[in-house]
Design a protein around this nucleic acid. Structure first.
Lengths: 334, 334
DNA sequence: AGTGCATACTCATACGTATGAGCTTGACTA
DNA sequence: TAGTCAAGCTCATACGTATGAGTATGCACT
């Protein structure tokens, strides 16, 4: 089958019997300045819309115009949180007539971005530094990272204010009477920092920090949660509330505790971080610290345009649902 | 700050004291044919890698080369199923050195795809026909739809074989002794077709089709599930098993039934369709018909390359987990 | 009739790359 | 000493668009 390309200015010009340059000016709206007639301009514009003319982005890019294309690097699409984030970014891009070029973190992906001359790069995810991205930043390309972890030299970093958020979670749990608060996380950089923040928050509330209550969630299989719950149940001083470093872990714990015969929140309270879609539909609905996704997306877009090397910290929001309850067990213990 | 663009062939040529055309040939590997020396070729290649040369995709596109860019149209990013699908597509794109241009379904988004001269378009989602996409197909652009619903003229449609899948679900439930099987769905085209398939499957298993057991899930708020469960509980002949048209609905039902005091699966069995990430972590883990996401993604890529106007139907997989149990209630009733 | 000048355009060039055709240099042949 | 030929390059052009500079036409004024 014949591949019919959209018409070019040249083709339109030929059919109307005018020059390509006049078509260009008529369509970009500055034909007046060189004295073209309204009649001619209208004629050209009508022909363009009728034949469904679309300027070639590639030709424009060649002239040095911005490509109106923003690279988005995502390492792990499995995380439901990224789906939302990409959606928010896409919506913003659409509004400002931009497009998103979606790629992975590999070297080839990055050179793809470079070949396409993207106007900027947004990388979504904590603690991953694609090899060669620093080259981009050094070359003057706006680079924005949404997530925590070590920032790139010359990149804007945007993230939830985890410290205040975790403070709020701990304050909330302490207010419910919990004195023994545990933490469950996978052994990654971002989570280690969250653990440190939790320790700090616990101390600030005058609570004791028990090393053994900080349990690592090992593995990705279905049994990982069971193992973690077992470890938690085996503790001499079992926590009455557990903070999970991510909602996906919190949801897995919810199920594992249920299967172990413990009721959430009557027997143990669980709080998460992220507020993924499933968290509102779990049994019980999960109390969690919501990532300010649309705000972060907006900040990222703004940063791409503004060329500011900054760190933007946006407060999260504690979604109080039903997975945390007043502590009855340890109420008396000082 | 100065925006440093990557070097061009011209710049490399100037610094090495050769012509741009020689650089072009040396880098594209056909310098031999015009008799260039190995020494010169190596010299140019070394300089190119050293200065991190990347060919301008825009210049190549201008020459008529494929842009190695595939448009992906997504209407609704909230659905966790699309996150997985996009991930699968991205991975395939990466492997074949393509990029994904992610856009929404609006008219501006579509013209963005046209301006960027994408090599093909994949639209993810059932029952949405972006205005103007047919123009693309007519112009000879490969268009692939992943999802059910009315296909475009000239587009390849790829979807799960829902009919066989639903047959399998019903057969499974009937095998567990269920005679009264209900259906819950939002009132959309795709779901209406699924309802029809369910009716057909019920009849094929010799089960009675009760109009009242086909309940619509109205609204998107938290109470929608409660309302649905109330409607189900109010039925004269309450189903002992319920098929939900989407996992997100099934999960909401799981919670609503639990809050209404019914145990799943002892008191009522629930099956879903899609197998989103949360379904494996629900209480109880959801038995559901898994969308063959990576297979569909692969088929979509293949179709973009192959220019076949076809319908590809890929079998789903019934993930038997723990939300369906043997029917004890109606066991005796014929 | 010649000059000035506004009107309504067209021409030519650049962007970065690929590629067919042309050019220079030196060695070898007649 | 001119002629042939191959080796190793360079030149010129096209792609689609924007834009500074140029051009043809008509009209008024002296």
């Amino acid at each position: 089958m014949l591949r019919i390309a959209p018409p070019t200015q040249k083709q339109i010009a030929a059919r109307l019997g005018v020059s390509q340059s006049l078509v260009s000016r008529a369509l970009s709206g500055n034909a007046r300045e060189i004295g073209a007639t309204d009649v001619t301009i209208k004629k050209i514009q009508r022909a363009a819309t009728e034949w469904n003319y679309q300027p070639s982005a590639t030709a424009l890019a060649l002239l040095g115009a911005p490509t109106r294309t923003i690279g988005v690097i995502v390492k792990n699409f499995d995380d439901p949180y990224f789906g939302k984030l990409i959606g928010a970014l896409q919506s913003l891009a659409s509004d400002s007539k931009h497009s998103l070029l979606l790629t992975g973190p590999s070297k080839e992906d990055l050179s793809g971005l470079q070949r396409h001359r993207v106007d900027g790069v947004i990388m979504a995810g904590s603690d991953f530094q694609p090899e060669g991205l620093t080259t981009f930043a050094r070359a003057g390309m706006p680079v924005v990272q949404i997530g925590t972890g070590t920032a790139f030299p010359g990149a804007t970093q945007i993230h939830m204010d985890e410290k205040s958020g975790i403070d709020e979670v701990v304050h909330y749990l302490a207010g419910l009477g919990h004195r023994e608060i545990g933490f469950v996380a996978k052994e990654a950089g971002a989570n280690r920092r969250r653990a440190e923040m939790l320790r700090h928050a616990l101390r600030a509330c005058g609570l004791y920090v028990r090393a053994k209550s900080f349990v690592s969630f090992e593995g990705t299989d279905g049994q990982a949660a069971e193992r973690t719950v077992k470890a938690l149940l085996g503790l001499a001083r079992m926590p009455t509330a557990v903070v999970a470093a991510e909602d996906s872990i919190a949801l897995a714990l919810l199920r594992a505790f249920h299967e172990a015969g413990l009721r959430v929140p009557q027997d143990i309270s669980i709080a998460g971080i992220d507020d993924i879609a499933a968290s509102a539909q779990s049994i019980p609905p999960l109390t969690t610290l919501r990532q300010p996704i649309s705000e972060m997306a907006a900040a990222a877009f703004h940063a791409i345009g503004g060329r500011q090397h900054a760190r933007v910290s946006i407060p999260g929001k504690l979604m109080i649902r039903r997975s945390c309850a007043t502590n009855l067990t340890h109420k008396i213990i000082p």
